[in-house]
Computed example of a mutant assay.
Amino acid sequence: MGKLLPVIIVLVGLLAGAGAGYFLRPAPEPEPVAEGEAAQEDAHDAGAAAPREHAAKAKTDREFVKLNNQFVIPVVRNSRVASLVVMSLSLEVPMGSADLVHRNEPKLRDVFLQVMFDHANSGGFDGAFTETGTMTILRRALLEAAGQVLGASASDILITDILRQDT
């Protein structure tokens, strides 16, 4: 019986592994559709495909414009610089609007720095400053500031790099 127990354990393990592999296998890939059938499906699914097509088009007619220099924001506590926050930003704008962003970059940097200084003074860069809620507040304020300079051109702010160096 002592020699039979390891064999039984191995068999049970193999069967359990095979069963798990069978039930957790990836879904099969969709079969390719011939052109004639695709036209029929497109006509049939036109209502369902329209939102997907619009979303894909909306993504492709946007571009990301990286602002040239980083932003350096001092975090002041007790009248002393306690840390420095360094950030890099990009703006999501309609395709072809990169020149508009670069022409207005000095104004954008000014309003962005003001927003970041206000964020730092309100404690936004203290503690776990990269929490989702804190970063959402900062992005929203930066997007609003970009809207003051660029109008409705800016649709999103991307924080590409962020670093806090405590002194």
Rank of each mutant, 00 (worst) to 15 (best):
D99K: 13
A98H: 08
V76T: 06
E105K: 04
N78W: 09
L91N: 15
N104Y: 05
L100N: 07
S90W: 06
V93R: 02
V101H: 01
L84F: 14
P94G: 01
V115I: 04
V76L: 03
F117T: 15
P106C: 08
S97F: 01
F112A: 04
R77Y: 03
P106V: 02
G96T: 05
E92G: 02
P106F: 07
N78T: 11
M95I: 11
V86N: 09
P106D: 06
P94V: 04
Q114K: 14
D110G: 08
L108Q: 00
D99G: 10
E105N: 05
R77S: 08
A82Q: 10
S90A: 05
M95L: 12
V85K: 06
F112K: 07
V115H: 03
L113N: 14
S90L: 01
S90G: 08
V115D: 05
V115E: 09
K107L: 03
R103G: 01
S83W: 04
A82D: 13
S88F: 02
R77C: 04
R77V: 10
V93M: 02
V101C: 06
G96E: 04
S97G: 06
L84N: 15
A98K: 12
D110E: 10
V85L: 07
S97Y: 00
K107H: 02
L100Y: 08
R80I: 10
E92D: 03
V93Q: 02
A98S: 12
F117S: 12
K107W: 05
M116N: 11
V81R: 12
R109W: 00
S97K: 09
V115R: 08
Q114G: 10
V101D: 00
Q114H: 13
R77E: 12
R80Q: 15
M87I: 08
L108W: 02
M95S: 13
D110H: 07
E105V: 00
P94D: 03
L89W: 13
R77T: 10
S79Q: 11
K107M: 01
L84Q: 15
P94F: 00
G96D: 04
N78C: 05
V111Y: 08
V86W: 11
M95T: 13
A98I: 00
